[in-house]
Design a protein around this nucleic acid. Sequence first.
DNA 1: ATAACTGCAAATCATTTGCAGATTC
DNA 2: GAATCTGCAAATGATTTGCAGTTAT
Lengths: 156, 156
Amino acid sequence: MQQDVLRSELRRRKQRMTAQRELVLKAFADTDAEHLSSEEVYRKVLEKRLRISKATVFRTVELLAEVGILRKIVFRDGIVRYELVEENENEDQQIICNQCGKAFDFSLDKVDALIKKAEKKTGFKIDEVQIKFYGLCPECQERLERIRKATNSAHI
Amino acid sequence: MQQDVLRSELRRRKQRMTAQRELVLKAFADTDAEHLSSEEVYRKVLEKRLRISKATVFRTVELLAEVGILRKIVFRDGIVRYELVEENENEDQQIICNQCGKAFDFSLDKVDALIKKAEKKTGFKIDEVQIKFYGLCPECQERLERIRKATNSAHI
DNA sequence: ATAACTGCAAATCATTTGCAGATTC
DNA sequence: GAATCTGCAAATGATTTGCAGTTAT
């Protein structure tokens, strides 16, 4: 699958397929985590008792992003992670809880309509949209409400 | 305006109003740039021949974000910038050219509808949305098209 | 064979921290 | 006057780079 895409892209660029590049790609294919930082990729490879250097991970992950196999995502706190680019592109949006920090993906139609509108309005040719919703997840809403009540009865 | 908000927030927190905190706030009030990094704030203050240290800028900008006067934005390339929080919140979206890197703001209605839908779908209480469109601006579309034509006639 | 790749260690860059002296309330 | 700030310089942490040796084509 992605292996082959990588191989042919590398050929086009006169670059080489190496064990390390396979390892990094495999780390993404094997994990069930949504995103991986370079550090996490590095550890995942080491766990399998296979050798790689951090510098190579950084270089490889960047290469895979250039080629379009990975997408680079800079999180709100500045941490850089990568994820496999999938088919269902514009349908996965992120929603992040400001309280507990948990992030969830969910899909939302309507995004295509939004893109069309933005293209018409600006003349851009849009090929990617990132939507991030920030707010309170249901659990934190509840928890905060509980705390609020307890505090009120204690202090008033 | 923001000065007063800051003053009273500081009082609540038993913190102090200082010359440096005013300077940083003023940097945001005075600039016409959309966002400023800490580095940029630092330089803006120095330009006015006023003294401040980088460490203080980092600390102050973080404080202003906590207080809600600034919003921290981590850009796609990992650069951290801040902007004044304004009223017209959810209406300014960003559109960024992948080619020349220019970024524009523009407003788009429909966003409220999108928020409602997302809230219903996830149970979150959403208080902020960031939408970033990535694509090609009109100029780059033209330029690339011109280049493509020139290259084709040369090589075929 | 040779151009591309890797690992290592040193370099860089943004941000953070510890602390002594300055400042605000 | 005491707690809070600031500036400085050193520390940190993530990423990048230079280079000599290794590997894929």
